[in-house]
Amino acid sequence: MSRRWGMVIDLDRCTGCEACVVACSAENNIATAGESQAAKGRAIHWIRVERSWEGEFPNVRVRFRPVPCQQCDAAPCEPVCPTYASYHNAEGLNAQVYNRCIGTRYCANACPYTGRFFNWFQPSWDKPLQLQLNPDVSIREAGVMEKCTFCYQRALVAESQAEAEKRPLRDGEVSPACVQSCPSGAMVFGDLNDPASAVSRLAGLDRGVKLLEEVGTFPKITYLARES
């Protein structure tokens, strides 16, 4: 049986530190938009930490949750793409083939989680910042949609390593940059088709909820609700 990558985010552990946000930018060559572009809503963050306030002073509570692409099983972004740039792969990822993308932005429109981002401008790095770029991830040009890939390149590296050592992939060996960095261990990643994996076990907890489950997208990210 093939793998089905999934993630669990424990909101009771999450501290909103945004280590995941910087980890993602570093791993995936996400260009910095700069103030004027960011003010136009063109900053790209494949993962963001949403915040909402509850109550009034002094009985105020803050809630937040990290939101990357939910990698839906029934992803609204896929059927709307006229060029099949947005598609579902065998491991359950909603992948984006950049060289097919013609920038219609239908997918961004269809996504209820706003997990897709359009490149409004050609990315650039002030020299020598380009030296930080990850050679395993390509640069997306202007006019192309991009999104969280669950750091698929990291999965490929790990798989390739396991294959070279002639052994199966271990649970926890593959982790996207956000999961790897998470200081409080709020994020867990793994194969949902492996019932023994940590992610399968956690996804089955009573606290597990899916984001906007009611719209029928069957996300592969399970949020574990805060207990207070």
Binding site: Q122, P123, W125, Q130, L133, P135, D136, A142, G143
Partner: peptide
């Protein structure tokens, strides 16, 4: 092949004119 040069250099960041690609 496989990023023999850095992606930044390879992607022609400086002078996109005809299309971004």
């Amino acid at each position: 092949v496989a990023g023999e040069s850095t992606p930044a250099a390879a992607s022609g960041l400086s002078s996109g004119v005809f299309t971004p690609a």
